[in-house]
């Protein structure tokens, strides 16, 4: 790796971090606006035009609020919980291809921080260790409601991870690669993967909702039963980290769904436009962000439409519906591949 490439990668890494943090901040604004609109209200409109400075005001409020660490809590683990959750949320952004790449002279600067050949597995592993942030935080609070919330959150997350991984296996069988860059590039030639994997996409979508703890699967923060869920004892910016990481997770999972099933940065007839390489990359990145926004809208739309599941319904859906469906999807994919002779 050349020096210029290394510097470029570091800059890109910082940009990805900044973009996902900024996007998450403005998603809080978007969520409140959309919630208001869906309920015939106006939403935040005092801080700046259209309330656009609201996230900054919220951030300042969060930072300056009083910090409470319960006396009988485990101090280090109490701090480790939200930090770890935030870290895991930020880590996923590096394998997503945000665009084809910038051509500068001889070298092509890819718009992806790192293209590890097991990108999908990397995503799954980061998602699976994200549970620890919740569990450690809930246990360290030394509060039974926080602990119950943490147990609920973790059992929900590990249950839906299984179905999620199974849904991805069918996709991997079809594409024959674990690298996100490859998967996106393959969709340039043919249709988007959602055409071939509609069932897999729906399973993945539902699991993404459950993994990000979004409604209708927001049982971990079930106010009506568990006070506040795993973050009952948290205050100030530590609570902010938990809430903020949820939005980052939402942003990243929207990006993942867009690139796995909806062609990533590709859009129809992109090569017929006659655009020059770098201009095309810029347009592609814009299209990719458009797709991400679409998914974020879906996330929020569903949150403000559907009521929460009951806990047994949640577990039934995860284990008795989604998992068998995902396995059936794998088998169907396998048979189709066998009969169409696509088996390598």
């Amino acid at each position: 790796m050349t020096d210029s490439m290394l510097i470029y990668k570091i800059i890109l890494c910082v940009i990805v971090f900044a973009v996902s943090l900024g996007a998450a901040a403005y998603m809080t604004w978007g969520e409140r606006k959309l919630a208001a609109w869906l309920q015939d209200r106006v939403g935040p409109n005092r801080a700046g035009p259209l309330g656009l400075l609201q996230p900054i005001a919220d951030g300042i409020k969060m930072i300056f609020k009083e910090e409470m660490i319960p006396t009988h809590s485990n101090r280090w683990l109490f701090i480790l919980g939200p930090s770890f959750f935030m870290l895991c949320a930020c880590m996923t952004g590096v394998v997503i291809p945000w665009g084809a790449g910038w051509q500068s002279g001889e070298t092509l600067y890819p718009m992806q921080v790192t293209d590890i050949n097991i990108g999908l597995l990397y995503l799954l592993s980061v998602v699976s260790i994200g549970v620890y942030g919740v569990m450690i935080g809930g246990w360290a609070s030394n509060n039974k409601f926080a602990l119950l919330g943490a147990l609920r959150a973790s059992s929900q997350m590990i249950s839906y991870e299984v179905a999620m991984g199974m849904a991805l296996i069918a996709l991997v069988m079809m594409t024959g690669t674990l690298s996100l860059k490859e998967i996106v590039a393959q969709q340039d030639a043919g249709f988007a993967n959602v055409v071939y994997q509609p069932l897999g996409f729906i399973i993945f979508l539902i699991c993404a909702f459950a993994e990000t703890n979004r409604a209708p699967f927001d049982l971990p923060e079930c106010e009506s039963e568990l006070v506040g869920g795993y973050h009952t004892e948290y205050s100030s910016m530590k609570l902010g980290f938990y809430l903020f990481a949820e939005y980052i997770n939402m942003f990243i999972s929207s990006a993942i769904m867009a690139s796995l099933y909806f062609g990533g940065y590709n859009f129809p007839f992109q090569h017929e436009l006659g655009l020059d390489g770098n201009v095309l990359t810029a347009v592609q990145t814009a299209v990719f962000f458009g797709k991400i926004l679409m998914f974020i809208f879906l996330f929020m739309w569903i949150r403000w439409t559907l009521p929460r599941f009951r806990y047994d319904q949640l577990m039934n859906l995860g284990w008795k519906v989604l998992l068998p469906l995902a396995i059936a999807n794998i088998i169907i994919t396998g048979f189709v591949m066998l009969f169409t002779g696509k088996l390598g």
């Binding site: 609109w37 869906l38 309920q39 015939d40 209200r41 106006v42």
Partner: peptide
């Protein structure tokens, strides 16, 4: 409801 008149 997104396109309805706001009650605020």
């Amino acid at each position: 409801h997104l396109f309805k008149r706001k009650a605020t």
